[in-house]
Design a protein around this nucleic acid. Sequence first.
DNA 1: TATAACTGTAACAAATTAAATTACATTAAG
DNA 2: CTTAATGTAATTTAATTTGTTACAGTTATA
Lengths: 136, 136
Amino acid sequence: MNNGRFAISLHILTLLCKSRGELLSSDYIAGSININPVLVRKEIIQLRKAGYVDSKEGKNGGCFLVKKAEEISLAELFKLVYQNPVLSLAKNIPNPNCPVGKAINTNLSQLYREVEEAMLSKLAKTNLAEFCNKFD
Amino acid sequence: MNNGRFAISLHILTLLCKSRGELLSSDYIAGSININPVLVRKEIIQLRKAGYVDSKEGKNGGCFLVKKAEEISLAELFKLVYQNPVLSLAKNIPNPNCPVGKAINTNLSQLYREVEEAMLSKLAKTNLAEFCNKFD
DNA sequence: TATAACTGTAACAAATTAAATTACATTAAG
DNA sequence: CTTAATGTAATTTAATTTGTTACAGTTATA
């Protein structure tokens, strides 16, 4: 899944957090990330569904943060963005007639769950407010 | 980076571990994983460079484990396979004229390092021998 | 109320990455 | 010599991610 969606979402949230009170347009945000504004709007849809942001349509519209930055856990953000596992199984179905092939996916999935659990507990220790403090 | 290389490498090592003493051909291994034998051979090249396996060319050749399964840490395997970070930055260079854009990659990279560190310490707690014990 | 500046969304195109395939040289057994 | 393997390069195909275009809907305000 190595796409940049977590980076993009966190960039958006950081900008919104730094500009609390203002409305930021997808064009402005896209200019900071240096990606296409449509991708920003798509990402914002997810952030809105999760209750982190809201947006105002029409002229002078834009996006704004509706949740306290302290309450936006990076673990939650991570889960929102990567609904598929970070580590993936091989695409093909392993040979069910082989003792290893038969059980590998179950065993790998268990391992992956544990590993992702470890990532998430690390991420759960921090939040948007802390991340934003790293900027001027 | 969401490719299945970790899954494939671990599958190969599991088969070799279960068949200690025998030589397994890339065709046989590919049949268990259900992928192309050339991919297996490419993966084996990496495993050999890392000193986990060796292979014998020519008729009746194949691949075999040369390291104790207890000494093959899944964290080391993970690092071998994923030399690029698991979590990735956005592809484009963020706007250096924006205070957030200017610093985001540094801050994200720091976060990613910590998260990957957490994954690796989890993986470091286990090894190939333990993983293999999960199979009949 | 017409225009301009936004968001929302769908449909499509391009670029990138991953996986598979083909081909063939090399090695070793028998 | 023939057969069965690895090693490796080159190419093709498929899948995924990213970008683009287009336009309908919304709202402020001249």
